[in-house]
Design a protein around this nucleic acid. Sequence first.
DNA 1: CACGGCGGTTAGCGAGCGTTAACCTGCCCT
DNA 2: AGGGCAGGTTAACGCTCGCTAACCGCCGTG
Lengths: 199, 199
Amino acid sequence: MTTHATPRTRREQILREASRLFAERGFHGVGVDEIGAAVGISGPALYRHFAGKDAMLTELLVGISSRLRDGGRRRVEEARAAGRAPSEALESLISGHIDFALDDRALITLHDRELDRLPEADRKRVRQLQRQYVELWVEVVRETHPRLPEDQARAAVHAVFGLLNSTPHLSRPSALPDRATTAALLHRQALAALAAAER
Amino acid sequence: MTTHATPRTRREQILREASRLFAERGFHGVGVDEIGAAVGISGPALYRHFAGKDAMLTELLVGISSRLRDGGRRRVEEARAAGRAPSEALESLISGHIDFALDDRALITLHDRELDRLPEADRKRVRQLQRQYVELWVEVVRETHPRLPEDQARAAVHAVFGLLNSTPHLSRPSALPDRATTAALLHRQALAALAAAER
DNA sequence: CACGGCGGTTAGCGAGCGTTAACCTGCCCT
DNA sequence: AGGGCAGGTTAACGCTCGCTAACCGCCGTG
């Protein structure tokens, strides 16, 4: 199940193009006229759909952070409800994150590059969502690797996020193996990196 | 041996502060007046030392890319000259990169965030240096893990860079364990992630 | 059939930015 | 003693950018 279908409303279309452009050239590097042009309207027409440029970035970042957290919670919940081992919950978290990283590359890029271009209030909200997502991982990692101290678990999780988010940053993604191969590779690496943290 | 001593010339002082500010708020998010203020002079005085704002970013990115590549080459060279196993060359590469990531956090951040704010010519130069550094790693990884296909080796190396570069991106680095612990942790994780790539 | 609002248009404003100009001061060197 | 240059200063320019204003056509509805 892909997380984002092709846009049906003009709003979604704008968000889609804005995320692409922001990821390519940075929030400050893209003008509103450019975003408008990308959807076939021009400049100020965007203000019929959004309060301003900031509002677009806010909506994108809150959206992806929420989806990451909620998706993670759901996966852990499901694994627990089915009585499966914590290690399976962890693998599910990894798979879910990989799907995100490979299918919503632009959003992942924004997510860890443009956070501090947000107005204070929104930034706090996004950071809270991100923190909850991290803590969810830390919880599950500590269940599967009980000898790992909490601060190291958190650092290890951050490192694995860096690993999983590496491919969207590639300037020439065509150099990658096909999707399935890349996904499997990242999965193996993430799992091993977390296991190695404990030693 | 740290890579960058405390600045003695005004030029170095400016570069130091500029890198800090660029890393914190992004290249477009920092004004020249602000950079000037950070070193106690104001605005246009910077033009006595640099051709422009772009030139500062260029010098920072070319500098760090060169140092990464040259340091990597030196380490591999040394290991080979001493007749040590490829696995030791790999571990030396990992250690060197970790030193960079932990000691020059701001530069590492710029290095993979602000590359495309560079004028075309400089960007090409930096990308070439980065590519050479990556290929150096890929070479060594393929010696230590011969069954790993080249494209997957390259993807695995990129992923490990993401892992190693994760800590500089942390907004609150105080949450990390102490330096030695963090370095050891990252080293274990990177090594394991590369080994797991082969399977 | 009028009409209201949705979603566009172009013109233009005001702020902030990088950069240049013009000027000044102290130090080194002969 | 004097002159030049290194390294500052402030003023100002011009451009870009986000955003607002003013206007307009289409379409669904009472």
